[in-house]
Amino acid sequence: MPITVNASLLIKDNIMQPGFFNHLLLICQFELNRRFATRKGLLSLVTFAVLWYFILLYPLRFAAALVVQEQGLNHHLSIFDFIGLGSSQHWSIPEFDVFWQLALIIFPMLSITLAADQTCSDRERGTLRFIVLRSSRDRVFFGRFTGVMLLQALLISAAAISTMALALSRDASLVTAVLPDLFALIVNLVLIVLPFTSMMAALSAQVKSARQATLWAILIWTFMAGIITGLAYYMPGLDCLKLLIPGYQLVEVAQLSGWQTLQLAYIPLLQCSVLLALGRWIMARQTL
């Protein structure tokens, strides 16, 4: 006599309640799928790739060539000195000097747009309700944050590697010299975008759309920087409040190179912790 087995019962027996990190991984993976496996995500990646190609081909390549020339002429003034981002110390190759200065501007700005929609549109659409029926708000919040951070880490790595490839196309013998600096660049840039991404995570938990999150980020950042700088000018004791401004350390970091840049890593880590705690608090109280 044939034995019939109810497939759904078998399925039910096999399931186990997933833990925090398992959910984090699943949510993070789904977030990466959104960026790499959907039309909208791919479109924004292609846009970034095209823009980066032109940055690499024109400003970066020409500026690097200029720095090489300046090094040959023993000049100590570059175009970045004019805009206040000239470094007193140099990276192993001129391309990284230029990349470092450009990346310090581009990636925080990219972070503000790329990380703007961590939870807001899903909350407005109601999709977040389907997810929190199966996962906690904390897991969703940190899972989305980790997903966006991973995406940015990949973009930063791709940009840094393409810059390295540009340098190697000029002089292939540089390969052993550039690798440690490549890692230093990637680690530093990931640390630098951390507070910007966590600021967007907190804003996204509060506002209704990605556009609102971006606008609020610009407004809050500008007013916070203006007010704290103004207060610190009259009351020097309040200077420590500048630590609250994401990117506060960028001007100083721009002067450094190699692993020395990690001297100021505590600032983005501290800012990230505060902003994530704030975002988590907002998310926990938010009506979905």
């Binding site: 309640q17 909208k40 995500g41 999709t127 309700r129 199966r134």
Partner: peptide, 20 residues
């Protein structure tokens, strides 16, 4: 977390993600 898989809901006007 103990209610995961035990309680489910159809929220009013909630829509699935249009990207997937």
């Amino acid at each position: 977390a103990q209610l995961n898989g035990k309680v489910s809901a159809l929220p009013q006007d909630a829509r699935l993600d249009p990207s997937f």
